[in-house]
């Protein structure tokens, strides 16, 4: 087996640039907040259920973005472009498939009643 090629640099982040602890700390703090809010609301029930659902949803979407940005280092730079395109396409397909499923299945359910 041939010897491994010599890479002159030490391993760095695959996204180029230094890997620092800052994004992870920021991400964790934001995630904690975005977790505490929905859990807290459900525990305390200070709003009407439908309003709590909206908050849960908004917090979830925001927290997902936080994870993508701070933990997965997905940003708008060219180095992330291919992944971002794949993610957007996946999101579109996901919306069509999940949305379509919910529409179809609830429509069928309604007609079964």
């Amino acid at each position: 087996m041939p010897a491994p090629p010599q890479l002159s640099k030490m391993p760095t982040s695959p996204h180029g640039g230094e890997v620092t602890i800052k994004p992870y700390l920021v991400g964790v703090v934001l995630a904690l907040v975005l977790t505490a809010i929905p859990f807290g609301l459900v525990a305390a029930r200070t709003l009407r259920p439908i309003q709590i659902f909206v908050v849960i949803g908004a917090a979830a979407i925001t927290q997902v973005v936080v994870h993508l940005r701070y933990f997965l280092h997905l940003d708008l730079k060219p180095s992330s472009q291919n992944k971002l395109i794949a993610l957007c396409f996946a999101a579109i397909v996901l919306l069509i498939l999940v949305g379509g499923t919910l529409w179809i299945m609830f429509d069928l359910n309604y007609r079964m009643m």
Binding site: P11, S13, E18, V19, T20, I21, Y24, G27, V28
Partner: peptide, 9 residues
């Protein structure tokens, strides 16, 4: 994430 920082270093 902290492990990732250590890996890079």
């Amino acid at each position: 994430g902290f492990a990732s920082v250590a890996i890079a270093a």
